[in-house]
Design a protein around this nucleic acid. Sequence first.
RNA 1: GGCGGCAUAGCCAAGUGGUAAGGCAACGGCCUGCAAAGCCGAUAUUCUCCGGUUCGAAUCCGGAUGCCGCCUCCA
Length: 467
Amino acid sequence: MKKKADISFYNTLNRSKEPFEPVREGNASIYTCGPTADRRIHIGECRRFVFSDLVCRHLSYRGLRVNHAMNITDFDDKTIAGAEAEGVSLEAFTDRYVGHFLSDLEALNIRPADHYPRAAEHVDDMVAIARRLHDKGYAYEKLRSLYFSISAFEEYGKLSGIDLDKIRLGATVDLDEYEKNNPRDFTLLKRARLSELKRGHYVPTPWGNVRPSWHIQCAAMSMKYLGETFDIHTSGSELIFPHNENESAIARALSGKPLARCWLHCERVLGSEAGGKTEEGGLPTLEELMNAGHSPREIRYWLATAHYRRPLHFSHDRLEQARSALKRIDAFVWALRHVDGETGYPEIDQLLYDLRQGFVSAMDDDLNMPRAMACLFDMIKRINRLMDESRISRKDAGRILETVEGIDSVVGIFDFTPKQYSPEVEALMRERRAARKAGDFEKADRLRKQLTDMGISVHDTEKVTAS
RNA sequence: GGCGGCAUAGCCAAGUGGUAAGGCAACGGCCUGCAAAGCCGAUAUUCUCCGGUUCGAAUCCGGAUGCCGCCUCCA
C-alpha cells in the first residue's frame, strides 16, 4: 500500500519542497485567503481558488479528510466605499457579491469549502486578539488606532524573506497620514472615519472606535476555524508581503506557534497585451470572460493545468487552446461510451495502473499538473489506438472510465454527462443518416452544414452519427 | 536601491547530472461518398548567450543579456 509521506509541497516558508506531514494523521486543515466582497472576481483570483481547490481535491483523493476554510472580507474600506457609493447597506452590498462569488466558484467547478467565515461576523474575535497582543506588548495604541510593533517581534520577515532595514520606506505609503512609532509597523485596528461612525461601521474598543485591518481578520478567522497551527495556508504570491507576513506575525506573537506548517503560494495571472505591466485590476473578471464566449470549463482547464508556481500570461488565444484540448478529452469519453466489443485487452490492468501511478506521483510532487496531464494524454493516445484496432471490450471501457473518473475527482475538467440533443437536432441527425444510406450525399451535406451552424459538430463512425 | 522569479520547437509547457514528456497549430499518409474525429509518420542533434566543473550539463558554478513580480494605502 501507499506510504504516508509521499506527498510533498513547496513550502514558501523554507523555500523548498518538503514532505507533507499533517498535524493530525489522516486529516488536512487548509486555509485560503478568500475574496473581498466588493466586485466580481477576476481571472487572477480565479486562479488562486482553482489552485486551492486542486490542493484540497488531491489530498482528498489521497485519502485525507480535508477541512477547508476560506475567509470573505466584507468589512473593509472597499466594501464600505462600495456600499456608500450605491447608497445601500453594507450587508446588502456584500451579500450580493458573496452570492456572485459562490456562483463563480460553482461555475469553475470548485468544491465548496467547509467554512466561509465573514469578517463582519467575527469582529469580536479580532478585538480579542488585539487585546491579547496589546497585553503581551506586541501592540500599541496611537491616536485611537492600534498598531503591531514589529520591533517587538524578532522573526518578522521570515516568510517573505524581506529585510526591513533595506526596504524603501514610503514607496507606496503616504507617511504623513500615519502616526506609527515606526513606519514599518502595521495596523491591527484602524480608527473609524467620521462617515463610518455615522453609519455604524465601527466597533467600540478600549482604544477607540475602530475597524479591524485585513491582516488581523485572516489571523483571527483562520485560527478560529482551524486552530493555532494548521496544515496548509494557500494564498497568492502577491500577498506574501505584507499580508501573509503580517498574518503570520500576529499568530506567532499570540500563540508562540506557527500559524501554518506549510505556506503555498500560487503565482499570478499577468496581462500579456502590449507586453507591458498590467494592473491586476485590469484583468478580466470571470463574468466578462464568460460573456466573451469562454466556458468556465475551459477557464478552469487553462488555470488548473498550468503549474501553480509559474506566472501565467492571460490571452484569449490560450483559452482557445484549452478549448481544443477539451474537445480531445470529450471525444475520448464519447468513444469509450460507444465501445461495444467483447474482446478484452489482456494488459488493461497494467495500463490503468500505470495511468493512476503516473498521475498520482506527478501530483504528489508539488502538484505537477503539466506532468499529470501528460500522463493522462499519453493514456488517451494509447487507448484511442486500441479502440481503433477494436481491442477494447465494453467491460474494459467501463473500467477505464472508472479510473478516469477517479483522476477527474482531482482535476475536475471532464464532462461525463451523456450528450442530450433537442428533438429538432435528433430529427436532423436521423434525416441525415437516412440520406447517407440512400446515397443522397448532397442532402446529407446540407444537413451536416445545418447542424454545424447550430453548433453541433458531426462525426460519422461505422454505426453511429453523433457529435 | 532591496528581495525574488523566469528564459526549452510557430504557440503553451514538463524535465534540476545520463542523452529533450504532453497539449494546441501546421505538414504527409490511413480511414471516409466528401469531411470531421481517430490512428500512423515526419517535425528542437538541441534547451537566450559566453566561460567553467564533469566521462557526461537544458539541468551544477561564474558572468552577460532580456523579461517579469514584490517592496507595508487598502484588500
